[in-house]
Simulated assay, not measured.
Amino acid sequence: MSSPGRQPRRPRRSPSPEQRQRDPERTRARILTAATEELSEKGIAGLRVSAIAARAGVNKQLISYYFDGKDGLLRALGTRWRERKRDYDRAEWSFPEVVAAYTHAANSDPVGTRLLGWAGLTYPTGKEHPDLPASAEQWRRDLDDLRRRQRDGELADDLDPACVLLAVVAATAAPTLLPHIAYGITGAEPNSPEFVRHYTEQMTRMIDRLSARRRPPERRE
């Protein structure tokens, strides 16, 4: 019997199969989001599983259960980035349109871009990065796509697609990774919506100048 004045307890309802399936997905997503934010702020060397767990509101044991530690988290974050990257890798888009999409994304939501910067500082050659095999394969696919675009006339024949790809990746991320230089050169807040729009538009123009279809400048004697 229940105590006087106290409502009888309702029987605990077991979660449905769908709920049991979704909960791990939500938990994994919360952990990955918290890890992204922690990494963006503190870098890979400063990453602490306990801090990620506290930010995600989960027991830190779940991080080991779902990701098998720090290296597994980094691999999962790489996978998440590549999944989002599909939104910008559209064959029907021109090269300037693809770069514009990357530029806007890299600077309007800069957390993921900072992760690339931290990875470079922590693993200068990339050889020790836990996500190296998958990320290297992604860069190879990006380079193959740029070579295809060069054959189609979107990139001048005298340009090395590998060097162009490296330069474009650096340029799209520059306002986020080098905000002090961006501010010193332009006098604008590099994270402001106005600057991001302007920089994206200028990147589109610059990339368009690399096209083989444009008439090369006349040489002066």
Rank of each mutant, 00 (worst) to 15 (best):
R114C: 15
T113W: 04
P110H: 03
Y66M: 08
L115P: 05
P161R: 10
I44K: 03
F195A: 06
L32T: 04
A56V: 06
L143F: 02
Q61Y: 13
E18G: 01
E128K: 13
E194C: 12
M206R: 11
R30A: 11
N59T: 07
R80N: 07
P4H: 09
T172Q: 08
A174L: 09
H129P: 04
T125Q: 01
A162R: 12
T125W: 01
K42R: 13
V98Q: 14
R205F: 14
Y199A: 04
R10E: 14
L177G: 04
V169A: 15
P161Y: 10
D23M: 11
V111P: 03
L143W: 10
R28W: 02
L155K: 01
F95L: 14
G46T: 05
D71F: 00
V196A: 12
S135L: 06
E218G: 08
Y199W: 09
V99C: 11
D160S: 00
R219K: 10
L178S: 05
G117L: 11
R26F: 10
R22M: 10
R90D: 14
A182E: 01
A53W: 00
F195M: 08
W139E: 13
E189Y: 10
R114A: 13
L177Q: 03
L74A: 00
Y102S: 00
E83R: 09
D157L: 03
R75E: 04
R148Y: 08
Q21Y: 02
G43M: 06
L39W: 00
E37M: 08
A51K: 00
S94P: 12
S211D: 11
P193K: 01
A106R: 06
G69W: 04
G78H: 05
Y102N: 07
E189N: 12
D208G: 15
C163W: 13
T33L: 10
S108Q: 12
H129Q: 06
K127Q: 10
R220V: 02
V164L: 06
A162L: 07
N107G: 05
A45G: 03
S192T: 01
D109K: 08
A156K: 11
T172P: 00
V98A: 13
R151A: 15
L143K: 07
L132A: 15
S3V: 01
V98W: 06
S135Q: 14
M1Y: 09
I185G: 05
T200D: 03
E189G: 11
T122A: 09
A53Q: 00
I63Q: 02
L178R: 00
P11Y: 07
R214D: 14
L77V: 04
K85S: 11
Q7D: 15
R149Q: 05
Q150T: 02
S2D: 15
Y65G: 13
F195R: 08
G117F: 07
E201M: 06
M1K: 15
N59C: 11
A91Y: 07
S94G: 12
K70G: 01
A100L: 01
D142F: 01
G153F: 06
S2H: 12
Q150K: 11
A91I: 05
P24R: 03
E221T: 07
R28G: 01
Y183V: 07
R205C: 09
T113H: 02
E92Q: 09
L210P: 04
F95W: 14
E18K: 10
